[in-house]
Write a protein that binds this DNA or RNA. Structure first.
Length: 804
DNA sequence: AGCACGCCGACT
DNA sequence: GTCGGCGTGCTC
């Protein structure tokens, strides 16, 4: 019976976003399986591309002549049945191509690279061969190939003297090392010894050494050379005489070679114990319940995760723990590895491609049963998952900002339903979406209100910058903050300074009264557009002139808001010349490992003040930091995004938690032009619940998530008028299928209206229940496919986090 | 994406 | 007359 494989091909377009039928050659029949990568001919020229086998069946849907699969790339399926199903779901939910989803789930080295070579199949003029092929008979096509040479090649191809050969290169390489293995038995070696001269001391010793290896695991050559008296030459002699064999062994690139000190379970508080018990009970009952652990900083959320993982491992299941990229510090890894040892695999962007591949293989081979990783680790090929944990679940980095625009939280919940296991979402400041679900009973709320060390949360002092500016204009430092910094310097204690860089220069604020220009219709800040010299609302398109004086207090001190870290560093150095300042921002942490190095230097007291952007707010824990200063609390508030308050609250709460975590009490100083703003006030009080209630009312009033679902369409074109026209055309198509409950915002131009010479427009749909919406959006994507030929790009983001 | 087919302007 | 421009259609 002929076997037909349904293959998803690596051609990310709308038209090819479906399985293609291929014939399975008899030679491949016995080991081909769904989930394997294959190389298949595709299109007129039969160029070779990578594909994924979805299913194997005995009937083809396609009427025409089927092409055979050229080769199977994998020995084992690269994607198991669960992840295959997940890729379909993900493609549908995020409006992405299934091939893009499949590639996203795998380490990047498993994505094929393509190349094309020209191969001579007949004799040609030797002079031509010399000039074209440099004397060889093969030549790779690349961008450096001159057009006239290309012409000559095509001519030869038409004459049948040259063939174009396509290559699919799997870059997934297994690292191999050489090991030493005795080739003879103990007795045979002894026999070999008798043939030696007495003086051949080294060889005698080598034989004894080989005898001692029998029954032992084969040592690596490099270890033998490093730890024994034998040289490379001795080993070679042994191999030549047939005493030993040099064998290739697979090795993992180990990103954490240092042995970690084991750590012990900590005693749990009653609250922690209750949380662990609740989740562990769920794991025993195979329940796919979602728990929201709302725990203040220092309440020991991590210990709850670790003990839950421990219980899950005892049930012979596996565990997946997601952590935001910036929180995935060496300290964090050490803590988990210290508890669970070598069965932990770590996946994050700091690893090389090869290291990621090796960690992935360890998981796939069931050598690792605990996975710790950032967003994409949610696709780790674990089987029999017992719990999925997502720390800092409110973090925006869990949402991928390119296709497939998935949220790791949604994937985690999907997988938990597949594995019948619970999910823990943990945060000191849960996203409103999650907290609201806990309110409705969709998730189960577990609160940790006590700090482990029984210390009070640090006192937060608000400094009104409107007042400070009057005394000392144009300084980023209020007298209060400056005095506190000097005080810590004198005591030999450390300080952390946060510069909030979000919303840099994009909005304007009055320096006298803190007034931020708002849209009259939307309760959202207007964004400054320098290209059109106007203030615009990104939601409704409202536009007005840039004010010269403050509409609130008539001051002329109304201007763009924003400051860079370098400028602040220079200013601070001038104000406190003796302070050793460490600056941490995108510029100083670009290189691999730079982030960790900076943190280590600070931990080693190489500096007194750590100055940085948001990245300093996460997870770092230095016992000698007794002061946290926030230079500008309000910049995020000026963003044209309804989540601005939520982000500000989260950020302030997080940095506050950095102060005085050990025995020393900490202080927090927050500079703000809007000290009365509710997000800042609730953060000062460490009152998440209060903020949650208040913000929910604001969201309710404005009709924003979690009261509404949202979906964002982005339309772009090199010509602005065409982008605008197409957007309105799409909006017109949408309205008829929507109910009265749905709200269509826009089309409006995006805040950065032009990127790479393309003009961007967006449409945001807010809705509660629109059964027809998903299908209509998919249809729009389909029908606008023709337009991509004419320079249009249409993108869809389900539940966007960024509205800029 | 990338390849072939197809239909119009400036060259041997 | 042909070479080659890129608009259009299709890929099992």
């Amino acid at each position: 019976m002929p076997q037909i494989a349904k293959v998803i091909v690596d051609v990310p377009t709308m038209q090819t976003n479906r399985p293609y039928d291929y014939q399975v050659p008899d030679t491949l029949l016995d080991h081909i399986q769904p989930g394997m990568r294959v190389a298949v001919p595709f299109g007129k020229g039969d160029r070779l591309i990578q594909g994924f086998i979805l299913t194997i069946q005995d009937q083809a849907n396609f009427e025409g002549q089927l092409k055979p699969i050229t080769a199977v790339i994998d020995l084992q399926p690269a994607v198991n049945s669960e992840l295959l199903q997940l890729s379909s779901w993900l493609a549908e939910r995020t409006y992405a191509f299934q091939i893009t989803c499949l590639q996203t789930m795998l380490p990047s080295v498993m994505r094929a690279k393509y190349s094309k070579t020209a191969q001579l199949v007949d004799e040609i003029d030797p002079a031509l061969q010399a000039s074209l092929f440099n004397g060889n008979d093969e030549l790779t096509f690349d961008q450096s190939l001159a057009p006239d040479k290309l012409k000559q090649l095509m001519h030869l191809q038409r004459q049948g003297k040259l063939e174009v050969v396509y290559h699919v290169d799997d870059r997934a390489r297994v690292k191999q090392l050489t090991a030493i293995e005795p080739a003879l038995s103990f007795e045979q070696l002894e026999e070999a010894r008798t043939g030696l001269r007495k003086s051949a001391q080294k060889q005698q010793q080598l034989i004894s050494y080989l005898q001692s290896l029998i029954g032992q695991p084969n040592p690596l050559l490099k270890d033998v050379l490093a730890t024994t008296i034998f040289t490379r030459e001795n080993i070679k002699t042994g191999a030549d005489k047939g005493w030993l064999r040099q064998v290739k062994v697979e090795a993992y690139r180990n990103p954490y070679p240092k042995t970690v000190t084991t750590t012990q379970k900590m005693a749990l508080t009653d609250e922690q114990k209750r949380a662990v018990d609740a989740v562990v009970t769920a794991t025993q009952n195979q329940s796919d319940r979602v728990f929201l652990v709302e725990g203040i900083t220092g309440s020991g959320k991590t210990e709850v995760y670790l003990q839950t993982i421990d219980a899950v491992l005892q049930q012979a299941k596996t565990a997946l723990m997601l952590v935001p990229e910036i929180a995935l510090t060496p300290q964090m890894v050490k803590r988990v590895k210290g508890r669970f040892g070598d069965q932990v695999a770590v996946l994050h962007s700091g690893l090389s491609e090869g290291e990621k591949y090796d960690e992935w293989r360890r998981i796939e081979r069931k050598e690792a049963s605990v996975v710790v990783g950032a967003r994409s680790a949610v696709f780790a090929p674990l089987e029999n998952i017992g719990v999925i944990i997502m720390d800092e679940e409110h973090e925006a980095s869990y949402k991928q900002d390119e296709s497939p625009r998935y949220h790791a939280r949604d994937v985690a919940i999907w997988r938990s339903q597949y594995h019948h296991c619970p999910v823990i979402l943990g945060s000191a400041t849960p996203s409103l979406e999650s907290r609201a679900r806990a309110q409705k009973g969709v998730y189960q709320l577990l609160r940790l209100t006590q700090r482990i060390n029984q210390q009070p949360l640090p006192a937060v002092e608000l400094v009104d910058m409107r007042v400070a500016m009057k005394q000392q204009a144009s300084s980023n430092f209020s007298p209060a903050l400056l005095d506190a910094l000097k005080d810590r310097l004198q005591k030999g204690e450390q300080s952390v300074l946060l510069l909030n860089r979000r919303g840099f220069s994009s909005f304007i604020m009055c320096r006298d009264c803190g007034f931020v220009l708002q849209c009259p219709n939307c309760d959202i800040s207007l964004t400054l557009h320098m290209d059109t010299h106007s203030m615009k609302c990104h939601y409704c398109g409202h536009e007005e002139a840039i004010p010269r004086t403050c509409p609130n207090c008539q001051s002329r001190q109304i201007r763009y808001f924003g400051t860079g870290t370098q400028k602040v560093e220079a200013e601070l150095q001038e104000l406190i010349p003796t302070a050793r300042i460490l600056r941490m921002d995108v510029d100083t942490t670009r290189k691999k490992g730079a982030h960790a190095k900076l943190l280590k230097r600070f931990g080693d007291h190489d500096a007194d003040i750590l100055l940085g952007t948001q990245m300093i707010a996460k997870g770092l824990d230095f016992p000698d930091v007794t002061l946290v200063g926030v230079i500008n609390a309000d910049t995020a508030l000026g963003l044209p995004d309804f989540r601005a308050s939520e982000r500000t609250f989260q950020l302030l709460t997080q940095v506050s938690g950095r102060a005085g975590r050990a025995d020393k009490t900490g202080a927090v100083i927050v500079q703000s032009f809007n000290p009365e703003n509710y997000a800042i006030q609730f953060a000062k009080q460490h009152d998440y619940e209060g903020f949650y209630q208040y913000e929910m009312a604001v969201r309710h009033r404005g009709g924003y998530p979690p009261y509404y679902f949202t979906v964002q369409l982005t339309i772009s074109h090199p010509e602005e008028a065409l982008a605008a026209k197409k957007s309105f055309q799409i909006a017109r198509q949408l309205r008829p299928v929507l109910s009265d409950q749905a709200i269509v915002l826009g089309p409006t131009p995006k805040s950065i209206a032009r990127i790479n010479n393309r003009y961007f427009y967006q449409i945001v749909i807010k809705y509660k229940q629109e059964p027809q919406l998903q299908a209509k959006l998919a249809e729009i994507l389909e029908t606008t496919q023709i337009d991509t030929r004419h320079g249009f790009k249409i993108g869809l983001d389900n539940e966007p986090l960024q509205f800029t």
